[in-house]
């Protein structure tokens, strides 16, 4: 594989691993807002790594332009959706999770 394909493969693998981390975070976190953080953070970054990795695998510039457009829209819509979700949850009376104050200081 040529150099650019190696870069694509590395970016793809990083994006996939980050996605997995996000998935584990969404599963294991104790509270909705922490899960929202886990999902929100990895959504945009994993998508960015993933799509730039694919852009390296695609040769022609049209595909790269389309991938850049996809990433551009996801970059704007995903945080907005997360914000709306958090606002709706707070509005719906969901209290953020607090660690129990351990008694011995």
């Amino acid at each position: 594989m040529s150099g650019i394909e190696w870069l694509g493969v590395i970016l793809l693998v990083l994006g996939a691993l980050l996605g997995l981390v996000g998935g584990i975070g969404v599963l294991r976190f104790p509270d909705f807002f922490t899960r929202l953080h886990a999902a929100g953070v990895t959504d945009t970054l994993a998508t960015g790594l993933f799509l730039s990795g694919l852009a390296c695998l695609f040769g022609d510039w049209q595909a790269t332009l389309k991938l850049a457009l996809i990433f551009f829209f996801v970059l704007f819509t995903s945080p907005t959706a997360s914000h709306a979700l958090a606002k709706a949850a707070l509005h719906g009376g969901l209290k953020p999770w607090k660690r129990r104050e351990d008694p011995h200081g």
Binding site: G15, G19, G22, G23, V26, F32, R35, L36, A39, D43, A46, T47, F50, L51, I70, V74, S78, A81, S82, L85
Partner: peptide, 13 residues
């Protein structure tokens, strides 16, 4: 809703 949102983003990928 968070799960649906995350599922959709991964489908794009």
């Amino acid at each position: 809703i968070l799960a649906v949102n995350m599922f959709g983003t991964k489908t794009v990928l």
